[in-house]
Amino acid sequence: MNYQYIQLEHQENVSYLTLNRPEVHNAFDDRMIAELLHALDSIDEHPTCRVMVLRAVGKNFSAGADLNWMRSMAEKDFDENLADAGELSALMERLDTLSKPTIALLQGAAFGGAVGLAACCDIAVAHDQANFCLSEVKIGLIPAVISPYVMRAMGTRQARRYMLTAERFSAAAAHDTGLVHSVTDDLESALQPLLTALVDNSPAAVTAAKRLALDIDQQPLNETTRRTTIERIAAIRVSAEGQEGLQAFLEKRTPAWKKG
């Protein structure tokens, strides 16, 4: 696909996915959603990618939905709106379940669906001057498609407030609610130790740990859940990387995946 609204760059073990419509504050429409879906598939299949960084060009991370796209939605019937919403839902699900760990770097405004993108990433880091808003009810809509991810990140109590009031909230408030993990005045400097930590870990274990977190989330602590965790730790213990990691630890040497 020829990307118009995003950039995708692979650098050694890291893939950088960048929103690139600064002239409209990186607002997204059906074209950008399609490009992001295509790029995420490419990242998942990339042979050397170990981490994906989601970022944006310009003053703002993303203002949310593009005005012209929203205008076109108003002219569509129910079935056409179902299809549109389905594509946005597919994007959130694809980002949320990407096999690689994901880091969002958030500056300026992150409104509407952009809050969903942040919530779908494994790690979210906000600039200290960033601000957030679940703005949908201001224009008679609701943050439906992103709500499962936002509520999981922020918790139901906090999400209900911001979904109902559509008030802007600061990076500090986003941190307090759990939407972002850290706040900084230098996103690039904050990124480096995270990349180092993730790349130093077993690639197979990181993928398995992410899958475990997704599968166990909000599941009851019952025999099925216990059996799942028992089977997964047993499987990874006897895997190639599991064996290598244990032997390296016992022999006090560097594991093979950290070499080269």
Rank of each mutant, 00 (worst) to 15 (best):
C49D: 11
D122R: 05
I142V: 14
D122S: 08
G64S: 00
L164N: 12
P47T: 07
V53R: 03
V51M: 01
A130D: 07
L141Q: 06
Q107K: 11
L106Y: 03
L37T: 10
K76C: 14
W69C: 12
L82H: 08
R152W: 05
A90T: 13
A65L: 15
L54I: 10
S99I: 13
W69K: 06
V115L: 00
R161I: 14
E136G: 01
A153R: 15
T102C: 08
A109R: 09
L117Y: 13
S147D: 01
K138M: 15
A104E: 00
G155L: 08
E93W: 07
L95G: 05
A166E: 12
P101A: 05
F78E: 15
V125P: 11
A63L: 11
R152F: 07
S42E: 11
A39H: 04
D29M: 02
D29N: 11
V150R: 00
F78T: 15
F132W: 13
T48R: 06
G155A: 06
K100V: 11
L88S: 13
C49I: 02
A34Y: 05
G58C: 06
A63R: 01
A90K: 14
I123F: 08
M32A: 15
H38Y: 09
M151A: 15
R157N: 09
D30K: 07
R161K: 13
A56K: 02
D122L: 05
G86K: 05
C121N: 05
Q158C: 09
S170G: 13
I103F: 07
A166W: 03
M52T: 09
Y162K: 08
P148W: 04
M154N: 09
D30Q: 13
V145L: 09
P47C: 04
P101T: 05
C120L: 09
K138D: 13
M70S: 13
L88W: 12
E87W: 10
A110D: 05
R31D: 11
P143R: 00
D66F: 08
D29E: 11
K59Q: 14
C121A: 10
L54A: 05
G108N: 05
R50M: 03
S42A: 12
R168W: 12
L36V: 10
G140W: 04
Q107M: 08
N81V: 14
D41N: 08
H46L: 02
P47A: 07
